[in-house]
Design a protein around this nucleic acid. Structure first.
Lengths: 285, 285
DNA sequence: CACAATTACGAGGGTCGTAAAAATG
DNA sequence: CATTTTTACGACCCTCGTAATTGTG
């Protein structure tokens, strides 16, 4: 049987027209290519070229062979691509969430529980997440509620408590807790990629939010500006306190959500270590 | 890029289940196959097998790769087949005729005029021949008439004259010529594969034909039996006289046909040597 | 202990590149 | 005379098979 490399050489000749230029393109010597093509003809038992002493051109049979060769090479490249893609999907857990906070909990958990697995994360809207879960685009989705569905399994991952973050000199700094309506009307710093937390802007209509979509830039602003901002128990747990900022609980139920993982029942077995661990953690909290 | 041989090895593993048995099937050693598969994995950058110390089994990615590999191997085999077939068709002239006689004229002519070309011959009915010519199943068809069609070119190939062949002792042996009706009522030897000559049986309804479909057996019968049979000028010209048989012309126009080659106009150029030669021959005859 | 897979290693074949030859416009 | 293809030839790489190793049922 001839080999793929020979088919590639054949198509190179078809493209370049001469053995020499094709050889150059293929980074081999002219004689090497000449011989290789002769061998292909020999293996097929068919003449593919019209040969005069210092010129070769594809004959009709050669033209046909080139067509087939292109197809086969395409199929081979397609195989490589699809196999790699499939392999990657086998080694990554794709997580979708309605908010960034739960990622802080889940990512280290997954890395610890599933060795050699990489995690891909995405924030999206609830309906997109649910559809993505059924379409196998996500292996896990995280919502602030439980979706009842016979094909799904849900379990509690964590709670997040939004905190008001202010400099010590700020008038609100001495409060033990606040309500959203108490702080509405301020000028606040707000990080953009916060998923469903965005709806807080609908509640705090009088507040002037200064948005920043770069995380590092946002943190820099928080450190240097005297303006209030939001943080949460999860942020502090995983990224630590910010110096010279005081965090004050916010009482409203809407900013103290519980997050639930949802998975397909068919993935229950594969993800069982996660479920077990999460249930344990929920009991501790 | 991996090579086709490696894909064949992969499918062999999928079929046989173990490296050893697959290696045996492929007529290579176990270590050679083992290494070759490792190399395939390396080139794909993907694990295809679950390996325990003395066992390897295809994993899901491997299963997928096998699917693709089978497809690619099939495509490659298909390419070989189709290219060979096409090449063969490029080097054979396919001739259809309503009778066998003209082949005796045409075959040596084609062999002489077209170097390296082989000739395939087939006897068939007129309407099948005409359809076959338009469908490119035949490059040349031979009929006992001229078909007028703007896409076709016709030229005379030869004439055939049916002769009565009898032993010298036969009552008809002294005749200079005969008519079909004079000889109707005899018992005659008849070779089966004679194309349109078969219609002679409709004219000679009183004759008892002893048919023989093996050419050698028929000739043996002619030599050894005292029964009359048919021959023709073309038979005698190319195969020589049969000893101890006398050939007598038959006057009826129906058994002295002229044969005309018909070709597609698009093939006129390629077949021009034949046309030229035939026209010359016609003038001689 | 038979059987399976992998590793080690030396031999051999095949393919490569350089050089040379032959031909063409 | 530059360009192109093919042949000749020696070097080297790569793959093969044998043998040894490790592990399993």
């Amino acid at each position: 049987m001839y080999e793929l490399e020979q088919l590639i050489q054949l198509t190179a000749i078809a493209e370049k027209g001469t053995v020499s230029s094709a050889a150059e393109k293929l980074n081999i010597s002219q004689p090497a290519l000449s011989r290789s093509l002769q061998k292909l003809e020999e293996e097929l038992g068919v003449k593919l070229f019209d040969r005069s002493k210092n010129k070769i051109t594809l004959n009709e049979t050669g033209e046909l062979a080139v067509e087939y060769a292109r197809k086969i090479i395409f199929e081979a490249e397609n195989m490589t691509e699809k196999v790699k893609l499939f392999d990657k999907s086998r080694h990554t857990i794709s997580v979708g969430s309605c908010a960034p906070g739960p990622f802080l909990e889940l990512t280290p958990l997954l890395s610890k529980l599933f060795d050699g697995i990489s995690v891909s994360m995405e924030i999206n809207e609830e309906n997109v997440l649910i559809k993505g879960l059924f379409d196998n685009i996500y292996n896990i989705i995280i919502l602030d509620k439980i979706i009842e569905n016979e094909d799904l399994t849900a379990f509690k991952l964590c709670e997040e408590h939004l905190l008001l973050s202010v400099p010590p000199a700020h008038p609100l700094a001495m409060y033990k807790s606040v309500k959203l309506k108490d702080i509405d009307g301020e000028t606040m710093l707000l990080y953009s990629h916060i998923g469903f937390w965005k709806r807080i802007q609908d509640t705090m209509t009088k507040t002037n939010f200064i948005e920043q979509d770069n995380r590092d830039a946002f943190m820099e602003l928080v450190r240097s500006a005297a303006l209030p901002s939001f943080t949460s128990n999860l942020q502090i747990k995983h990224n630590g306190d910010v110096k010279n900022r005081i965090s004050i609980p916010i009482e409203d139920e809407i900013v103290n959500p519980r997050f639930y993982c949802h998975i397909h029942k068919k993935n229950k077995k594969a993800l069982s270590p996660l479920i077990k661990k999460s249930v344990n953690l929920s009991q501790i909290f």
